[in-house]
């Protein structure tokens, strides 16, 4: 049997994984920029609490994160119930649920990385920009973001890779439905449960490694290019 002839459910798992990771990174990024900026630059009451809540998924077992999401957003959860009643939206055990689980689990990583990058940007350059007549928001996009770009990119890649590997929260909140929520790690897990499926397992593991390596290489290339210019 050829090691590179994928079955349709395997291809589906690869597509799903990349899809979840891409959506999760895209959704996380704007929020991470907002939180990263405020945590880096502002002092406000309750800052420590906000920080702790953001970082919670980093120290909690992912399964518990997934369970909490289920409690809140599941069809019987207090937000989920309302979503279903008002809009007919069912989140738990869907592709969207896999994305949401990934967002929560990878969010602390991307926020941390962006926050550190913004802290490295000299705030006096932002002052200089404002004195030149450019408002706060434009200053953020014209000065802060470009100067923090390497950290923002590597944070996003980190979040992407973490989403790609997300298991615990996903299986709890999104389930393990082939073709719908079964991402690469879940497929690997499913194969491992069946005796005689070692080759398939290895193949998926290899694919995961390759995708992660590719993402990291891209970010490294980008950062090098930034440094050169």
């Amino acid at each position: 049997m050829n090691i590179f002839s994928f079955t349709s459910s395997e291809l589906e798992a690869i597509k799903l994984s990349v899809g979840v990771a891409v959506y999760s990174s895209i959704i996380s990024l704007p929020f991470a920029l907002l939180f990263g900026y405020y945590l880096a630059r502002r002092q406000f009451p309750g800052k420590a609490i906000v920080e702790s809540i953001i970082h919670l998924p980093l120290v909690m077992p992912p399964v518990t994160t997934g369970y909490l999401l289920l409690l809140i957003l599941g069809t019987r959860g207090f937000i989920g119930k309302w979503l279903y009643a008002a809009f007919g939206i069912k989140l738990a055990f869907t592709f969207e649920a896999a994305v949401i689980a990934s967002v929560f689990v990878s969010f602390p990583l991307i926020v941390r990385s962006i926050r550190t990058a913004i802290e490295m940007v000299d705030p006096s350059l932002e002052d200089a920009s404002r004195i030149l007549g450019v408002g706060r928001l434009k200053t953020f996009f014209r000065i802060t973001v470009p100067l923090a770009a390497p950290g923002i990119v590597s944070g996003t890649i980190l979040a992407f890779a973490r989403s790609l590997g997300e298991f615990g929260a996903t299986i709890t909140f999104a389930g393990n439905i082939a073709g719908e929520t079964q991402t690469l790690p879940l497929a690997v897990f499913a194969y491992m449960q069946v005796p005689g499926r070692e080759i398939e397992t290895l193949r998926l593991v290899l694919i995961s490694v390759l995708i992660s390596l590719f993402a990291m290489a891209l970010s490294e290339l980008y950062i090098r290019k930034m440094k050169r210019s």
Partner: peptide
């Protein structure tokens, strides 16, 4: 009046040019 609306030119000791 916010900094950006005061129409002031400020030349800093260290120049503060935008490095990028």
């Amino acid at each position: 009046v916010p900094v950006e609306q005061r129409r002031i030119g400020y030349v800093f000791q260290e120049g503060r040019l935008f490095p990028h």
